[in-house]
Structures are given as C-alpha cells and as structure tokens.
C-alpha cells in the first residue's frame, strides 16, 4: 500500500514544526490572555488545565515519533526523517508540563516539589519518563550520532521505557474513564506489538 502526498519537499519540514507548535501556541495565547485579566477556559484553574494539556500533547508527540517507523514499513510513508523533530517537540511539552506543575500547581515550592515526586508513585513515574528522555535529547545531534556509532541506537531504545512510563503516569491519574488515556494506551500497545512482531520475525530468520 502506498499513500501519495504532494506537498512540495521544501515545505514539509516547516509544516511539521508548525503542527507540533500549534498546541503550545494556542495554550500559550490563552495563558497570555489570562495573565492580562481576561476570562478564558484556563482562568479558573490554569495549573490543572495546562498540566493536563501539556501532558496530553507530550504523550501524543512521543507516540507519534514512535509511529513513524511502522508507518513507513506499512504504508511506505517516508516521514521517519521528521522523527527527531517530533521527538524534540515532545520534550518541549514535557518541560512545559513540569514547569506548569512546579509554578502553577505547587506555587514554586521546591520542597513540596521533591516531596510530591517522592511521595506520589504516578508523579515519580512521570519524572522517570522525563529523565529517560533527557539523554536522548542531548544526543540528538548528527555529531552525537557519529560519535556514539552503534551505541547511539542502543541508547535511543530508552524511548520505549519512557513511553511506557509516560502512559502509565497518565493512566494512573485518571479519576474514571477518560478517552484520551485509553487511546494512548491502545496506541502504545499497538506500536510495541508491531515492533515485537517484527523483531520476533527477524530473530526467527536469523536462526534459520
């Protein structure tokens, strides 16, 4: 199966960046309006709403970055070249998420921040996910790739435990049925399942 898209090559990369930035621009704009005293959807409880939205988009983009390889294998969509951009954008949302939690929910109380991270298992999982992503961000340059050679690929397998932890972090904080958390879980299971399937198949080939 092959899907044709006809966007001129020079426009594709900027489009990826614009799409990834849109949620941040929208919620950033709402935050500016709120700071100016306007009544917006985030006015009443900006901490809760922005933490929810930033976390939601962080996982969306993290899963999107994991989906690009399967999309290429299944539908010959050659979007893998944008994987680094999508992954880096996911981390932008992770940082926003942590910043919102620290400033708007905890009121810049560092002691409370550590207390929450240590005390609340689901927050600890989220923190671990963010920590696992950090070395991937730091080694995302071409130079790092050349330097680390084979090790680079091994290091970047960390994205899988990070994604699993992030989705559990989201699932753990829902009060009841929430469609976003369920969809993220299903997508993650599908993506991991596909990779496991391919890995087992190639392992069998190697044996025979």
């Amino acid at each position: 199966m092959s899907v044709q898209i006809s966007l001129p090559q020079p426009l594709r990369r900027p489009l990826v960046h614009v799409l990834c930035a849109l949620p941040l621009l929208y919620w950033g704009w709402q935050t500016v309006l709120t700071a100016q005293g306007q009544f917006t959807v985030i006015s009443t409880d900006p901490g809760a709403v922005l933490a929810d939205k930033s976390g939601f988009w962080a996982i969306n983009l993290l899963l999107a970055s994991l989906a690009l390889t399967p999309l290429q294998r299944l539908f010959r969509l050659r979007w893998v070249r944008y994987r680094r951009a999508v992954g880096l954008w996911a981390f932008v949302y992770v940082l926003t998420h942590i910043l919102v939690f620290y400033t708007l929910i905890l009121g810049r109380d560092l002691a409370e921040f550590w207390h929450e991270v240590v005390e609340r298992p689901y927050i600890l999982l989220g923190a671990l996910a963010a920590l696992l992503l950090l070395p991937l961000v730091l080694t995302s340059t071409q130079a790092a790739m050349r330097l680390l050679k084979k090790r680079w690929q091994q290091l970047h397998y960390l994205v899988y435990p990070a994604a699993i932890l992030a989705v559990i972090h989201q699932l753990w904080q829902v009060k009841s049925f929430e469609i976003g958390a369920v969809i993220h879980t299903l997508v993650l299971v599908l993506l991991l399942g596909l990779r496991l399937h391919w890995w087992l198949r190639s392992a069998r080939r190697r044996v025979s």
Binding site: D45, L104, L106
Partner: peptide, 20 residues
C-alpha cells in the same frame, strides 16, 4: 492515595498564582 489533602488551590488562580 494519589495526592495530598494537606493543602488546596483556592480558585480562581487570579494572575496565574497557585493560591495554595
């Protein structure tokens, strides 16, 4: 079990303050 009840955020968070 999942969060502290020792403090609360008094809403609205006027001026983007946590109001804890």
């Amino acid at each position: 079990p999942r969060w502290s009840q020792a403090t609360e955020r008094r809403l609205p968070s006027t001026g983007l303050q946590a109001n804890r």
